[in-house]
Design a protein around this nucleic acid. Structure first.
Lengths: 227, 227
DNA sequence: CGGGCGCGTCAGGGTTCCGTCAAGGACGGC
DNA sequence: GCCGTCCTTGACGGAACCCTGACGCGCCCG
């Protein structure tokens, strides 16, 4: 859920923004002056701030500076002033975008999405998903398998098979599904491939490969990965 | 030094931008059509792109998509179209800002500064910038590699490859991803490039290049940098 | 009790993939 | 215009990997 802080002293603008943002499932806080805005920003940690420069209690640029003192949250400035100087001042103070009133709601929302998007951490936020069995660990993001403190080397096919099984952890995966996901959609009956590669996975990862505890065979059906 | 890629088919606009940017000590490349823009972006890796939507050879939005396929470089769109739809389309395709012609040079430069500023890495993780393997150190910020007290000289391509690997330290990086990040999005199968440049990196950085400890090959999949 | 079926194991051969070297071409500096 | 640096490209030996067939074993069923 994305949280937005709207700062404007004109009630009808705040209302219009709040309605439109809530309708798009944003979480919205609103402030009518600069002091409240700074306090709310600190308390609620919004993902983006929409800030009107014309506030009753302080200069809008000072609000920007107040925020930039401790956060890099995207700031989208809203202003009735069209002068170039005003824009330059706000942007150089740390604003991310500057929209002049009257503004189109579609455009504002698009600029808001752009601001939020680029604030997201790089690389799609792929958390290091690590599965731990006690005997070995599988790091799906790094494509790494560790056993007894040593990295285990897997071939592409071995890794691919392991990945499908681990992602379906606990569930039974049919042999046809395994074959198609690892070898391609035109495969489905070559169960000997599975036997060979399951054996290699077990040899590399199981403490006792002939009595597997994690790579379970379900005769006639498929295989299952268990922690 | 900040590098800017200017994309516009109107020579006078390009000239005005180039002059103004160079006067402010930016490094500037210019392209007059989309294909050239994508090629230059891949070759020169600009820190920000100024893109006119009205290009002779392809839709500007497709240029944005072409860039976003492999890079998060800030894109500042320049357009004669004022319609809300156009803006929304460009922004949602991945643009960072949208300025309508005619534009004030002061404002454009301020928006450019804002785009470059927020693309900078956050201040705080300073110690993450230098990676130490024991045999050599890589300073990502200073773009320097030091080995046995001496700076190692890397070619641009060597450095770029090293950078991608180090930033993904420990993680396996697929050959396709490496090729696209270093050579550009239109590459993906030229694995011989990787073989040549990995060999050069190893020759310059590994104690025993034929038995690499830090630049690990994962046959059939990609490469991995290990401390 | 014997045969069939499914599974696990092993080793060899063909193919793909990788490391290495060297030559040719593009580019920029002097 | 020459020279050095860098990038591209091709070729080749060797290593890694994938496929394949053969065999043994346990289980179920006839």
């Amino acid at each position: 859920m994305t949280r937005v802080l709207v700062v404007d002293d004109e009630p009808q603008i705040v209302r219009a923004l709040v309605i439109n943002l809530r309708a798009r499932t944003y979480e919205v806080d609103a402030a009518h002056d600069g002091a409240t805005a700074l306090r709310l920003a600190a308390a609620r940690h919004p993902d983006v701030v929409v800030l009107d420069l014309g506030l009753p209690d302080m200069d809008g640029v000072d609000v920007i500076r107040g925020l930039r003192g401790w956060t890099r949250v995207p700031i989208l400035v809203l202003s009735a002033r069209h002068s170039s100087d005003e824009k330059v001042q706000a942007l150089d103070a740390g604003a991310d975008d500057y929209v002049t009133k009257p503004f189109g709601m579609d455009e504002l929302l698009a600029r808001l999405r752009a601001a939020v998007r680029r604030a997201e951490p790089a690389h799609g936020g792929e958390d290091d998903v690590v599965v731990d069995t006690g005997e070995f660990t599988v790091d799906l993001a790094a494509k790494k398998v560790n056993r007894a403190g040593r990295d285990v080397r897997l071939t592409p096919t071995e890794w691919h098979l392991l990945e499908v099984l681990v992602r379906n952890g606990g569930r039974l995966v049919g042999q046809k599904q395994l074959l198609q996901e690892v070898w391609g959609p035109s495969y489905g009956t070559e169960t000997n491939y599975l036997r060979v590669y399951m054996a290699q996975l077990r040899r590399k990862l199981e403490a006792d490969p002939s009595h597997p505890k994690h790579f379970i065979t379900e005769p006639g059906m498929g295989y299952r990965f268990e922690k």
